[in-house]
């Protein structure tokens, strides 16, 4: 049942502005998109990360494809102050869908939810996200 609901939600999220009020607004990312495609990532990101985290932590393999540290870098979202927001903000990439789907993850009790200081990137919101546009632009001006 839960699976079904999640599926439904994911389908909804793929329809852009039409779903406006219903679906969460997923911020755009920097860097190359995932070769597997967005839908695949939406559904499988937890499994990929779990697999790769064991790969790094237990096997010592640092060249993994799904590093949490890397997600945070490409998917950083800037707040009003022009700095990447941390997980306490509902703008944070990892929270956009999770808040919506009532998923709670504990990753950021240990992992920093912001990228290392230098590699900051300004992320623009998707079209249609007018509410927050002002804040982003303000952040950009700074």
């Amino acid at each position: 049942m839960k699976r079904l609901l999640v599926m439904l939600f994911l389908m909804l999220a793929t329809l852009p502005a039409a779903a406006g009020g219903l679906a969460p607004v997923i911020p755009k990312a920097s860097g190359k998109p995932h070769p597997e495609g967005n839908l695949f990532m939406r559904i499988n990101h937890m499994k990929l990360m779990k697999h790769d985290r064991d790969q790094t932590v237990r096997e010592g393999d640092r060249e993994i494809g799904h590093s949490l540290k890397a997600c945070i870098e490409c998917h950083a979202v800037n707040g009003a102050d022009g700095q990447p927001v941390d997980i306490s903000s509902d703008k944070h990439f990892c929270r956009t869908c999770h808040d919506f789907a009532a998923v709670k993850v504990d990753c950021f009790q240990c992992h920093n939810s912001r990228p290392e200081a230098k590699s900051q990137v300004l992320i623009l919101p998707r079209p249609g996200d007018t509410n927050d546009l002002a804040a982003y632009l303000e952040g950009a001006a700074r």
């Binding site: 070769p35 597997e36 695949f40 697999h51 790769d52 790969q55 096997e59 010592g60 393999d61 640092r62 060249e63 993994i64 494809g65």
Partner: peptide, 22 residues
């Protein structure tokens, strides 16, 4: 990491050298 996308589609995610492991 060999990943099976839908039926029959296989995706190979290449990491670095094997020497990168412990």
């Amino acid at each position: 990491a060999t990943i099976t996308l839908a039926q029959g589609v296989t995706l190979m995610a290449f990491g670095g050298q094997a020497g990168a492991m412990a």
